[in-house]
Design a protein around this nucleic acid. Structure first.
Lengths: 337, 337
DNA sequence: CTGAAAGCGCTTACAG
DNA sequence: CTGAAAGCGCTTACAG
């Protein structure tokens, strides 16, 4: 059953049927004709072929959600929030969403434009895009492409991006810890070489201590290879073995904090009595750990939603220039420090 | 840049270019011609237009992951596992995956076939499909459609489905509790009217008690409206107020167990000393709650993967008849009982 | 092994 | 307000 069959049954031209199917062409068909044709459409449950529409309209009405190709993505509470926001944002639109997963080995050779063509999408949101930096680098050169990044902002980025500012978050943490009279404050650092967020949080941490006249010592610091729980666990283990433990440890994200807590609990160190722990992200699990994690909330849902809205504007041509949207983080005081 | 441009530059026909782009047509073009054309393809970074391909091949090479339209979906650890498995399963194939979210209000009127057309997919996996029962009912009548359900199996289902058998799981729980000499065993029940899984777990619970000659009392039972944490919390609250608390509570899923634990902890009831708690699902968080949750593991990742593999076989016509795959659950003994 | 041509199912100027 | 026709960019019998 295609548009021609409907036209035949309704005794009109395909052009007329096409106009009736297009909600943007309300006034173009007489009510009488419309009624007649709609009856036929109903009767046969006619649904226009999307591929044909896409081919002739040069638009697929589909957007791509681009992530690294890894099942772990979906395991991360950080993405959970982002994706929930994306779903929320797509709701009022009638766009479809295609999940495009980019493998490490292909990220190098791909061009942004190819990716869009290959997967037939009108635009793309990038999650964890620093892991496919090769690919995304191009966004800088073709800022007119409908693509928006999420987080991992740095000052050089000129493309569209939605992110949460790290500085105020770390500032709030330091103020809070200073008020609690901690004097030996350490940090479990993230992968600063690959993640600007990790880098920025570290810098903001140092700045925060300084502001409150608390001494910074590199020995009260330990680096993690990645942003996951396991890295946190092992880093904490290394740190414990070499000694130099501070009174409280600010972790570059919640996953690291959980790993660290797990190690400390394993060796019977009490939190926060013996060592305080602070996280960053406010992933859902943070309310469930024991003790509950004091952390900084990034409004991931709002961010995901904003990313979609920005993207749609870019696609529809309402925004021609890149759009950058900054969100503010918020300290969530709970039990772990 | 389209196939005609490439043909022109390479001085061959579009048919030849098309054959070269199709990996399934290896031998059809002479190595010489192939080399010549591939050079041009490389040079211009030619990527064929997917919509055009879909239109002429009658296949989009895309599958739909159908879920209820709710951001909470992505918040559920149960889906986390399923989706991770789907990602894993899609990896070796080159299919794209489209996330199709069905709103409550549209689920009624939709036909399965419409859904496929409307979103331009070759097949569909259904998650939480009991929430769109109206829609999925049709699968029964058109078992030839490439669609596979996940979980919520019941004996009447004749369509393709991948599920985890509830009986052995509940059986293991009961045997374990009997061995621990619990005599007053209760259950926090799921929404049995809408979820066959909830229903089956309840029935298996009763059967399990009987097998171990432990008395069943309906008063040691409380029903939840939904399968989420909040329902568990409130049901536990109701239960507590009316009294009749058993020594240990088997919950219809982990989310309910978390809700129940949260309420009990709020009122300072110690787990498992005063009341034991058992969950069902082994969602990741179960290792993180305090105490860690004793629960039953459903191999969600394997299930998601199997669903995709089944679907692909259905699409390619390798399986003509519906395929039903059953997985076995496994008791995970931890601290909460 | 290669090419000319029809066809996939739509949309959209253009003419009336 | 309606229709005839060209065009979107591919694939695939068919013929050679």
């Amino acid at each position: 059953m295609n548009i021609r069959d409907i036209a035949l049954k309704a005794k009109v031209s395909v052009a007329t049927v096409s106009r009736i199917m297009d909600p943007g062409k309300k006034g173009l068909v007489s009510p009488k004709t419309r009624a007649k044709v709609e009856k036929v459409i109903q009767k046969y449950h006619f649904v226009p072929n999307r591929s044909a529409q896409a081919l002739s309209k040069h638009s697929t009405h589909t957007i791509g959600m681009v992530t690294p190709f890894s099942p772990e993505i979906v395991r991360s509470p950080y993405f959970e929030g982002l994706i929930a926001g994306i779903i929320e944002g797509i709701k009022p639109l009638s766009y479809d969403i295609k999940w495009i997963m980019v493998r490490d080995d292909e990220a190098g050779g791909l061009k942004l434009n190819d990716l869009m063509q290959r997967h037939a999408v009108d635009g793309m949101v990038f999650l964890a895009w620093r892991l496919m930096a090769e690919l995304v680098k191009e966004i800088e050169k073709r800022t007119h492409l409908p693509a928006v990044l999420i987080n991992d902002y740095d000052a050089h980025i000129r493309s569209s991006i939605v992110y949460c500012d790290n500085k105020p978050g770390m500032k709030q943490i330091c103020a809070f810890l200073a008020a609690k009279n901690y004097s030996k404050i350490g940090m479990l650092r993230g992968p600063e070489n690959v993640s600007p967020d990790a880098h920025e949080r570290y810098e903001a941490f140092k700045a925060g201590l300084k502001q409150h006249k608390i001494g910074f010592h590199e020995k009260y610091t330990e680096k993690c290879e990645r942003f996951d729980e396991q890295s946190g666990f092992h880093a904490m283990e290394r740190w414990y073995e070499r000694g130099d433990l501070p009174q409280v440890i600010v972790c570059a994200n919640d996953d690291l904090a959980w790993g660290a807590m797990r190690f400390l609990q394993k060796i019977k160190v009490r939190i926060p009595e013996q060592i305080g722990i602070v996280g960053y992200d406010d992933a859902p699990r943070s309310e469930w750990t024991h003790p509950q994690l004091t952390t900084v909330r990034q409004p991931t849902e709002e961010m995901g939603k904003a990313a979609i809205e920005t993207l749609i504007k870019l696609i529809s041509g309402k925004d021609r220039k890149p759009v950058q949207i900054k969100f503010e983080p918020q300290l969530m005081i709970r039990e772990s420090a």
